[in-house]
């Protein structure tokens, strides 16, 4: 069976660290970074990128639209 793999790219400088994407992610891919971005927010990043299924839930709820989602079959 083909496996679906996804990946997200976060525009780190535009992220406001609201954690809404982290909560909505069904697989626990996203976590908040310990470091801060230029605005002083702990930005979201794909901490467990191998778990991503490319469902785009995170991008859909992101108020600032900082997440871009890619998906492919392997």
């Amino acid at each position: 069976m083909a496996k679906i793999r996804g990946s997200i790219v976060v525009n780190v400088e535009r992220c406001k660290g609201c954690e809404v994407c982290m909560v909505t992610c069904p697989t626990g891919t996203i976590e908040m970074a310990k470091e801060v971005n230029g605005k002083g927010y702990n930005y979201a990043f794909p901490a467990n990128p191998e778990l991503c299924i490319g469902c785009a839930n995170c991008a859909m709820v992101c108020p600032d639209g900082v997440i871009t989602v890619y998906k492919t079959k392997i």
Partner: peptide, 22 residues
Amino acid sequence: EFSGIKEIIKPGNLVYKKTNIM
């Protein structure tokens, strides 16, 4: 794993991107 992720990030695999109207 990380090199695998880079292969996924290609324009052809794009699912969701912030719209150009914004």
